[in-house]
């Protein structure tokens, strides 16, 4: 089961890289970046998954004594939790830069942005 998640995450990373490298519209590149982000998170969470184990939350089904033998790895989950929020912050900064670029140059095509003689 972990193979499916890892393969899916890796393929999503490749789709994101493909979008970032081949597209010319800046918004499209930012979409590719956010896909890359999501794929990376899926891979990380998939690496922490262990078969036949449950979520790391102590309750009636998971007594505290059995936690280390019956729960999945909590560390990648904690990392991904903060990484998602940071990803949102980075994406919003990228979007605002794209917006400012559009307002000053009136285009989003990276090929047309190359000349910096007149603005």
């Amino acid at each position: 089961m972990i193979h499916i998640a890892l393969a899916g995450g890796a393929l999503l990373i490749f789709i994101g890289i493909w979008g970032m490298l081949t597209k010319k519209n800046i918004i499209r590149i930012i979409i590719g970046f956010s896909l890359f982000d999501t794929g990376l998170h899926v891979v990380l969470v998939g690496l922490g998954y262990l078969k036949n184990r449950t979520a790391p939350i102590v309750d009636a089904d998971l007594p505290a004594k059995a936690a280390s033998s019956q729960s999945v790895d909590p560390v990648p989950q904690a990392i991904v939790l903060t990484a998602i929020v940071i990803g949102l912050a980075v994406t919003s900064v990228l979007l605002v830069f794209a917006l400012k670029l559009y307002q000053s140059k009136n285009t989003l095509d990276i090929n047309k942005l190359r000349d910096n003689t007149n603005d």
């Binding site: 899916g8 930012i30 956010s34 998954y49 979520a55 999945v72 998602i84 949102l88 994406t91």
Partner: peptide, 26 residues
Amino acid sequence: IYVILAAPDVAMTEAAIGSGLSTVMF
């Protein structure tokens, strides 16, 4: 997928931030 991979905390974050707020900002 995160729910199936036994990560409910991450699933809540992704659902609220990734598909909600991020889309709104775009």
